[in-house]
């Protein structure tokens, strides 16, 4: 999968107009200099040779060096990836906290007014563009009410250079016990993760509801109810636990949606993550970085489905690979 995506992206970005040399040099550059620069970057070689060289590099776990900033692509990515990870984890958290309880409640009260209301909320929130919801949150909670910072990962007066180690700012600030910075980091996470999480929660409401319906109709739940065990723990403990496996599987499938959402959220909230890196470097036609970002995104998707498979196997002993 990785290989095919890489091939598509590799070819597409090279046959389209614009190249990193034009992005780099001013209009003053004479043709000779441009040619020399192209030669230096290996852009004058036939496409197939460039491709072979690149694959060779990737096979050696080297994503190459940025053509514009001469920075290792891996280092550019390791700079930005933690920001995206932090955002997606918190986004996912919001999704689960909103989606699962609402879905379970809707299933429990099937075909009631609340059920329809929750399902309607699920559909509507799914149709709201994540970047627009972000703008609205910025306007309402950031500008009008001034409760939360509107963008960025830290306030200008909280200097990342004083704590940065892993790039996951929550961990970094905890490591040096800087509570003030931690608070600042958390406050900056509120609006972006709420935006991302809410939009994705629509899908989770639906998934949870559908799976819960199946579970609630199963014999053991009916039996438990018949035995007079209280309704709440039956539904929300045993029911949810049993619906959890399919929900988890679906969660694995939503990773690509989560990533897409993260890219847009990053753009709205000036979040210095992978999505912003990709957009900026596309404009600069920085081929190695664009390819590197795509590779990492593909790896994340593959990795997440692997994790889900493993958890699935752990939870459900019938599944063996």
């Amino acid at each position: 999968m990785l290989f095919i995506l890489l091939t598509i992206v590799f070819v597409v970005i090279r046959i389209m107009p614009g190249d990193p040399v034009s992005a780099m040099l001013g209009g003053h550059a004479p043709d000779k200099v441009i040619e020399a620069k192209k030669a230096e970057l290996g852009l004058n070689k036939p496409l197939i040779v460039q491709y072979g060289n690149y694959l060779w590099q990737v096979a050696h776990l080297d994503l190459g060096t940025s053509m514009i900033f001469k920075q290792k692509v891996t280092s550019a990515i390791s700079d930005k990836l933690p920001a995206t990870i932090e955002l997606t984890i918190f986004g996912m958290l919001v999704t689960l906290l909103v989606g699962v309880p609402l879905g379970a409640y809707a299933a429990d009260n099937r075909r009631s007014g609340q059920d329809y209301l929750i399902r309607l909320f699920g559909i509507v929130i799914y149709c709201i563009p994540v970047y627009w919801l972000g703008l609205m949150f910025q306007m309402i909670f950031g500008v009008w009410l001034d409760w939360f910072p509107v963008a960025g990962r830290t306030s200008p007066r909280v200097f990342a250079s004083t704590f940065e180690q892993t790039g996951l700012y929550i961990i970094d600030t905890l490591l040096i016990n800087d509570w003030k910075a931690l608070w600042d980091v958390l406050m900056h996470l509120v609006l972006p993760s709420l935006t991302l999480g809410l939009v994705l929660s629509g899908i989770f409401i639906r998934l949870t509801r559908a799976n819960m319906l199946d579970v609630l109709r199963s014999d053991y739940i009916l039996a438990a109810e018949a035995r007079g065990i209280r309704h709440f723990p039956v539904v929300y403990k045993h029911g949810l636990l049993n619906a959890f496996v399919p929900i988890l599987t679906m969660m694995g499938l939503q990773v690509s949606l989560l990533m897409a959402g993260a890219v847009l959220t990053e753009s709205t909230f000036s979040w210095p993550g992978m999505g912003r890196l990709l957009l900026e470097r596309i404009y600069l036609r920085d081929y190695p970085t664009i390819q590197g970002v795509i590779v990492i995104f593909a790896l994340i998707v593959a990795f997440m489905s692997l994790i889900v498979d493993i958890i699935y196997a752990l939870i459900d002993p019938r599944v063996r690979y």
Binding site: M1, M16, V263
Partner: peptide, 24 residues
């Protein structure tokens, strides 16, 4: 199928961004 599956599993928006940014 292999090609389609790879494109399918990848975040579509990110591919669309790459294509749209490159085209006129």
């Amino acid at each position: 199928s292999l090609i389609m599956d790879s494109v399918y599993s990848f975040p579509g928006l990110i591919l669309a961004i790459t294509f749209a940014a490159m085209l006129e």
